[in-house]
Design a protein around this nucleic acid. Sequence first.
RNA 1: CGGGGCAUAGCUCAGCCUGGCAGAGCGCUGCGUUUGGGACGCAGAGGCCCACAGUUCGAAUCUGUGUGCCCCGACCA
Length: 601
Amino acid sequence: MRMSRMFGHTLREAPTEADTPSHALLLRGGYIDQLMAGVYSFMPLGHRVKRKIEQVIREEMDGAGAQEVTLPAIQPAELWDQTGRRAAMGDVLFQLTDRRERELALGPTHEEVITRLFADHAVSYRDLPVTLYQIQTKFRDEARPRGGLIRVREFTMKDAYSFDADDAGLDVSYNAMFEAYRRIFARCGVPTVPVQADSGAIGGKGSQEFIFLTNIGEDTIILCDTCTYAANQEKAEFVRPSSIAGDGQPIEEVATPGVTSIEALAEFLGIEARQTAKAVFFIATRHSKDAPDEVFPVFAMTRGDLDVNEVKLANALGGVELRPMVDSEVASYGIVAGYASPVGLRADVRVVADLSLVDAPNLVAGANKAGFHLRNVNHGRDWQAAVIGDIVSAQAGHGCARCAAEGREGHLRAERGIEMGHVFRLDYTYTTKMNVSVQDASGGQLTPTMGCYGIGVGRILSAAVEAHFDDNGIAWPAEIAPYDVHLVGIGLDRDAEAAADAEALYAELTAAGFEVLFDDRDERPGVKFNDADLLGMPVRLTVSSRNTKAGVVESKARTAAEAESVARAEVVAHVRALRDQAIAECSVERIEAIARRPSLA
RNA sequence: CGGGGCAUAGCUCAGCCUGGCAGAGCGCUGCGUUUGGGACGCAGAGGCCCACAGUUCGAAUCUGUGUGCCCCGACCA
């Protein structure tokens, strides 16, 4: 590609809307353009990167035995009613109506469509196992798009779905995808950590996310500093700091005027936070397919040094939807905010207690009376939880549960991260809801078990930049760079010999199978070098009259500190060696070795 | 969905307080000089000042109502 003909210009200054390095560099380089909140165009350079990423994904999916399909992006809304997900997705689902008033949805994901497709065409156990995938545009009306391509409303996703006869088969399919994902992220130069994750509204049992650790991330990840345990904070298990032991003392009221926070309470009474109890209140809604929604108040209790995690709480209640109570609701249930107490609480309020409260005697809790707390509150004696479970977030410094189980001591740390991919064991969730079965070997019917596996293509693109840039611009990983070589011609309009040399080299490299961006513009050297650094091709070659006269070409890897002179006849072999080396740098071993390093960006 | 900020040329921004011809730098076009890390001179092109309503002789500027975008939080298959 001749740069003089390439659509788009580089910018010296990043548009103000960019607040992350990757977003700013992609805009400055003319890779992407924003049409509206969370909706982007890919310009020629960005489109090439996107295609390269898709190519890597295709190779790995095909290599893992998956078959590519294309599913419709526009879907009948009633398909989403079959699984109850039209309601569960809420406003995130883009909905529209066609000319016949039929309700439609733009696909945010394709479990329903693929399950239907499978049901229509798979007839016997001989059709199993099968894994289908597509690379396609998804639509999700996110409440708040952000971070350039990180959270958008229209995006390209690779989604794959596996169907197996039994759990053992699902394990095989799941593991094949898991391993393919490791190679995909490595080849794209994005270091990721597999973490245990909550399955959320998609359902199923068990999932893992591939997380790119970066301080611009929107998820909080808990990692052990001793073993390889890593989990999303919504899921992370941990060892609770111990409670202070003691025999149950008589309950007593204590005046605590104006003391409404745990910190203030602990300071006022001269005790530790773990000697207190705190509560938060929610309204829970339980959706069910065949019955009206059940709505009930929830009073979530935990020890004062821990924080309630809404996802864990919702799971403890068997998968309900939660929202915080508003002040008027708090009052209507007889709860005094700031001094809330489980002691003597109205019976219609469901009390959920964290595990930390089971063996925590003599806590200070609210008296449910403004200005007063109760000392020596004991679970089981003074109050009783309807549900006891893990409903709090792991925090940095907590003990690692896996290490503890294996007789080691490990401590957790917290990092920010971006979800690059997610693999789920869906189990029989969708095949059951949609009544899918195939004939088994003995003539009976068999309900297949499913897995689903997603990767965000745009997120890989952004994360690759986030992981590979410097003060001057992007440094693309070899396999996803828009071009292999950035060929810079200096002063070609003044030196016919050098110009011919550059043209010849352009042709030679192209003939050798390299993709070359040839800067043939009539610009000063500084402009060209700066653009080359900004755009970030792995190798820069410079042809000038000086070099041509000396029979050399100057070569500089984007990540190298210095340029080197290469004999003209050796250039193609030299570029090939650089490329092989750059690809080797994105091996699974090398990329994963740095993945757990805190906050790369 | 709550809170905050912003909206003027392709990009970065002045001008607004105190109403009176629409501005600068970069970028873009032409010509000339220059040519190894974002050159210089000359001449140009480029605007529904987010929209609508109001106040006024007169609105980018003042008032009101919207809309859009960004950030924080909630949400996130």
